[in-house]
Simulated scan of single mutants.
Amino acid sequence: MTVTALVLAGVRPGGDPLAEFAGVSHKALIPIGGVAMLDRVVNALRASGRVGRIAVSIDRPELVTTPDVEVFRSKASLSESVADAFGRLGAPLFVTTADHALLEPEWVGYFLDHVPDVTVTAALARDTVVMAATPDTKRTFMKLADGGFSGCNMFFFRDMAAIKAIEMWRSVEALRKRPLKLLKKLGPRAILDYSLGRLTLARGVAAIERLSGVSAGVVEMPFGRAAVDVDKPADLILVRRLVETT
């Protein structure tokens, strides 16, 4: 399967403290191993052999000098930027972020090879796998009955019905680091299951399907570093060290 890919590289409203820390205008332009994070991601997508068309969504398109990519002006939020790009690019669409600086071609191939036959798929990794690969990282894990999970910044939209899931994303976007408030969006059954320690990943996905109105699934990634992105100075220091020692 060869797909179109979208890389999200815009700055959230209010600016980006990490970009300021690194002395650049945009986090996507922070160099790691001598290469800007955005270019590292694009290079990994190309090297996977699974991606044809590549688009970048950023609030200042003139800053993108990466060759052979399309550039869209981003919107006010990630979900709005995805909705806009989805309308331009269509489906199927693979989405990732410019701060996924450790992205490997193998991860892209594994994810696409294992996407279930559903409208929307997200990549996740278990806490045990993440911490075994990167014991120094500090991730936010969703604690479920069958384990703790972290997102891996990889999504797949199989068909145009995925716009419903993108609209749902917009309604919960601000809650991504607040699991309990996110659960309230999923309904009272999810809250009860979570409070009793019996909410499983499968039940969580089913709740998302009910809320969005489309079929959904996950790919559990065996690569712990796939859950490591660059959100804060400690992440940047860690990722730079990992790149320099591999």
Score class of each variant (00 low, 15 high):
P17M: 11
G197H: 03
T4L: 05
E106V: 10
D127C: 00
V205K: 01
K75N: 11
R170M: 05
F149Y: 15
G151K: 03
D113T: 07
F156M: 04
E244H: 08
V228N: 09
T200C: 02
A207G: 00
F155W: 15
L45S: 03
L18P: 08
D159S: 08
R88G: 00
R53Y: 11
D68W: 10
L201D: 02
F155H: 10
S48E: 15
P17N: 10
D146Q: 03
M160P: 01
K138T: 14
L29Q: 14
A206F: 02
V129F: 03
A91R: 12
L192C: 00
S77G: 02
V71C: 00
D16W: 05
R73G: 01
D235T: 06
G15R: 10
V95Q: 04
H114W: 12
M37H: 06
S195I: 12
D16G: 01
A19K: 07
D39Y: 04
K164Q: 10
V69R: 09
S150F: 03
H114N: 15
I32S: 00
G90R: 03
L29E: 15
S81I: 12
R73S: 10
T97F: 15
V3M: 06
L63A: 09
I166D: 02
G15P: 04
L45M: 09
R178P: 00
M142H: 12
G15V: 08
P17K: 07
P13E: 11
V35M: 14
F86P: 02
V24L: 08
G52E: 15
V228I: 15
S215V: 03
A9N: 09
R60Q: 14
K181F: 13
Y110E: 12
T2E: 15
R178D: 15
D235K: 03
A123T: 03
L242K: 01
E106W: 10
E70P: 01
D229C: 05
A123L: 07
A190S: 11
V64G: 00
A226V: 12
I58L: 05
R50A: 14
V69F: 11
T134F: 07
V41S: 04
W169K: 01
D117W: 10
T121F: 07
F141D: 04
L196S: 06
W107S: 05
R46S: 09
A19V: 05
A44V: 11
I191L: 14
A234R: 12
A227F: 07
K27H: 12
P135G: 04
A202D: 12
A161R: 15
T96Q: 05
R158E: 15
S150W: 05
R53D: 15
V71R: 03
R139V: 14
R210I: 00
S81N: 04
D235H: 13
V82F: 11
H26Q: 12
F157A: 05
V95L: 05
L144W: 02
P222E: 08
R176T: 12
P13R: 07
G148Y: 13
L89Y: 06
F155D: 04
G23P: 11
V41T: 08
A207S: 02
P233M: 13
L18R: 08
L103F: 06
W107L: 03
P135T: 06
F155K: 02
F141G: 01
V129H: 00
V130I: 13
T140D: 15
N153G: 00
T128R: 13
